[in-house]
């Protein structure tokens, strides 16, 4: 791939994601103060010692933002990886096995998707105890329904191609067909889908935290920080908007990269008869 063929918008996206991941990895090194350390008065304005001011309990907002990147990205990424693995395994199984297995998985998936994700999450989280791994698991399972749908469609698309038929006529086994014939031809759309799921997970996690059902305090996470500081808004204090902007920026960056990946996939398809 030619680096110069990557458009500016995708470079912006890549840069934004890199900064966020850097913050997440080296949070203790970069952050000027501790995650839970009360360092000054409540809602101090930006400037001076506190670049972005302080929050509703007098903690440094910038430090919490950096630590928050850690929690938000880790949880969203874990949920995405999990949902993706689950969705892909089930969808490829369904597509290759066909018949009853396919019918059963697909109909169950339809049922899961008949309930809006957020509503489903609210109902389930109302019952389950509040643990980080339960949160990740719930997000992953709910999201895997969308991955299943895409994965099955993509796999079926490729599975009916004649080169797959040719491999079957040669006598190749399922493993070869899935990993050597189908998978390489589905990587591009699936990579784009992974990005989409990741962006969705960030937004979803933030929404849950904002509603008080995601990450529990005092751990810093962006959605929770909005919730903590939202009462300042009516006094004209913008502390709640800063983590909100961070969420939006990261989601935009991911979407910019996804947009480019999708265009690339479709131009490959259109331009060269490539699957």
């Amino acid at each position: 791939m030619n680096l110069r063929s990557i458009p500016l918008s995708a470079w912006i996206g890549i840069a934004g994601i890199t900064i966020a991941i850097f913050c997440a990895l080296f949070a203790p090194v970069i952050a000027p103060f501790g995650e839970r350390e009360v360092v000054g008065d409540v809602w101090l304005p930006a400037g001076g010692d506190f670049l972005l001011g302080t929050d509703n309990l007098g903690r440094d907002l910038l430090s919490r933002l950096i630590y928050g990147a850690r929690t938000t990205i880790f949880v969203a990424l874990a949920a995405t990886v999990l949902s993706f693995s689950l969705g892909m395994i089930l969808s490829f199984t369904a597509a290759v096995m066909g018949g009853f297995v396919d019918q059963f998985f697909s109909r169950f998936n339809d049922l899961m998707m008949a309930i809006p994700t957020l509503i489903f999450a609210l109902v389930v989280l109302a019952v389950l105890p509040q643990h980080l791994w339960i949160l990740i698991l719930v997000m992953a399972v709910l999201d895997s329904t969308r991955v299943f749908r895409i994965g099955r469609a993509v796999a079926l698309d490729v599975a009916v191609m004649e080169f797959v038929e040719a491999a079957r006529l040669r006598g190749e086994g399922s493993t070869w067909i899935i990993f050597r014939e189908i998978l390489p031809n589905t990587l591009s759309p699936l990579l784009a889908e992974f990005g989409l799921r990741f962006a969705f997970s960030i937004l979803f996690l933030s929404t849950l935290s904002f509603l008080g059902l995601g990450i529990q305090p005092p751990a810093a996470d962006w959605g929770g920080m909005v919730k903590d500081n939202k009462d300042g808004i009516i006094f004209g204090i913008s502390a709640a908007l800063i983590p909100g902007a961070a969420i939006a920026t990261l989601a935009i960056c991911v979407n910019l990269v996804v947009d480019w990946l999708m265009k690339r996939t479709s131009s490959l398809k259109g331009g060269r008869g490539d699957a």
């Binding site: 918008s9 933030s206 929404t207 939202k230 909100g244 989601a251 935009i252």
Partner: peptide, 25 residues
């Protein structure tokens, strides 16, 4: 580009942004 950005904004961010400007400022 604008719509791509808009689908990435969480509802609560948009909401508080509007409150900040139209109700408070």
């Amino acid at each position: 580009v604008v719509s791509l950005a808009a689908i990435s904004l969480p509802e609560f961010f948009v909401g508080y942004l509007l409150i900040m400007f139209f109700a408070v400022k």
